[in-house]
Amino acid sequence: MRREARWGYILTLPFTVHLLVFFAFPFFFSLYLTFTQWDMFNAPAWIGGKNWVRLLDDRSFWSSLRNILLFALVFVPLQTILALVLAFFLNQSIRAKSFYRVIYFLPVVTPWLAGGTMWGWMMNKTYGLANYLLGLLSLPPVDWLDSKHWVLPITSVALVNVWKGVGSSMIILLAAIQGVPKDLYEASSLEGASRWSMFWHIVFPIVSPMIFLVLILSTISAFQAFDVFLVMFNAPNIVPDSKVTPNILIYKDAFLTTKMGYASAMSWALFIVIMAVTLVQKRFEKRWVHYG
């Protein structure tokens, strides 16, 4: 047994070392950094809780949390519902099913740089397609991305993010829906169930664990949003508070002004927020997710 255990340790050693060096060490080191001032060029200087105190008073950081919260509130439910509806219909016997699946998945493999630039132009106030269409309906132009009211630009970006992300969520849910036994559809059909009843009483409960997974993953990715803002607002390092996200602030402090201590404090604060939101989601899990 001891001999087997020894071999076990030896064979898992590369993974253990990898885990310790590239995951555990940075994790705890970044926590230590939150209590330091570190410019990356000299040894970190211990400053106690000053970074955390500054964080409480940092208007930009609180604005970024407000922005990302709205972003998540728009993006997560919208993407999940849309992905579920698409997955349900693309599981039906319809013509050119594969074609539609490819079309809906295409944005996932489109680079953000191309997709974001395209959407940026479509949402341009003066020359954009969106306002051109509104003009045809005699509606006034909307400043989708540059409005001084923060809600509008953040919502616009969240919608673009739905376009980009719905395909991957759809694939996960489609796989789950395809696992629903066909005889359940047949039996309910014989009982005269409508398509809505089939969806709500059969499909939804069975795929609910996957919906929960999609919700958790989408929420985490929403709070970590970076590239979509990076592309849609052109200059991530000079976005105003009304459009900033925590990850942009972290990037700016860590890599543009090398204030690694404060950037680490913001990273940990974001981690705490994401953990809290995930725990809240987990708490409500039993109310609607059905396992087996």
């Binding site: 540059d146 390092n237 000079i238 105003p240 002004t257």
Partner: peptide
Amino acid sequence: PSWQEWRLAAQPIFADIYGQKL
């Protein structure tokens, strides 16, 4: 020495003034 930092902080607000939002 902090030019990069204060410029990055000032620039978006100047952009809002330029855009007549502020």
